[in-house]
Simulated assay, not measured.
Amino acid sequence: MDPNQQTPQETVVAPVAPLLEDQLELDMKHCFENLIVIDVGANLTNKKYSRDLDSVVQRARDAGVQKLMVHGTSVKSSKEALRLSRIYPDIIYSTAGIHPHDSKSIVEEPATWFDLEHIAQAQECVAIGPCGLDYQRDFSEPDAQKQIFAKQLQLAIRLNKPLLIHERSAQLDLLEILDKFENLPPVIIRGFMGTAEEALKYLERRFYISLTGYLCKDKSDTGVRRLLEDGTLPLDRLLVETDAPFMYPNTRASKLPQHVKTGITERSLLYLHRYCTFQRNEPCSLPAIVEMIAAFMKKSPDEVALATAFNALKLFGLS
């Protein structure tokens, strides 16, 4: 193929002249009926959204994202996530957490923990976390991670709010800590990137698992794709998130099966390729992720969208 020749997909997502912007929006609204989806993980406190957050939220709603959960991963971002939930009521909900990478900040400044507790008590804050263990990087020592993780488990139990857990290369230690606590609220393993065997250990404990655009990167025979293809991950344990601005779902990835690529609607591709990039993913990419999951599971996108939205509404008490 001539390297200068555009593929049909590229034609769909080519830049549009500013004068045609309104027409594009109109066309997109009538292109397909929206899936109704809920993004349980978007990092909208990230500075990449500082100039156009209103537009980002509106695009998400236009794409069919009914509600967004903005994660707090430190005291500062938890406070900002709560502020956003009050600026965009009934659309944005917040979480309050100390990410494993940030654990040392609480160890070094213990008084800041009380700020997090105060934020977590707000009605708009619907979950504790992301918290957990991450041994892939050494931003915080394992002992500090374990200490702050345990404090957040205690907080979630006391407030009876669901737990969002981040885990990388630390499953044994994580499960050992979790097993020490009784009366845990619902647990969500967010942005899962592990193996099917690891997922089974979570599912045996009746934990929920959320998936992201990492599906496009997973090339293993034992990972996330296998979970979906062989039915290991049931719909009643599944949630979806974009992890925006991260985890851009590269629907053009060479290892993505053709039946998955063709399962993504034109409408979802328009939002994805016009507004999202590797440098800045947006919540409006969520319908494309749901359609990919549905294709892997050999289910209809409507079925996956409905199940994951129901799970989110039930778990987090979203109104």
Rank of each mutant, 00 (worst) to 15 (best):
L133F: 11
D134C: 12
Y135Q: 08
Q136P: 02
Q136L: 10
D138E: 14
P142W: 02
P142G: 02
D143G: 01
Q145F: 12
K146A: 15
Q147I: 04
A150C: 09
K151H: 10
Q152M: 08
L153T: 07
Q154W: 01
L155D: 09
A156S: 15
R158Q: 15
L159S: 10
L163M: 14
L163S: 05
L164H: 06
Q171S: 11
Q171W: 05
L172S: 11
L175C: 04
E176D: 14
L178F: 03
L178Y: 01
L178Q: 02
K180E: 15
F181N: 08
E182Q: 15
L184M: 09
L184C: 11
P185A: 11
P185T: 08
P186M: 08
P186E: 08
P186R: 08
V187K: 00
V187T: 13
I189V: 14
R190I: 10
G194R: 06
T195A: 09
L200Y: 03
L200H: 05
K201Y: 04
K201V: 06
L203W: 11
I209A: 00
S210K: 03
L211N: 01
T212I: 12
Y214F: 15
Y214T: 05
L215E: 09
L215R: 02
C216V: 11
C216K: 06
D221P: 02
T222A: 09
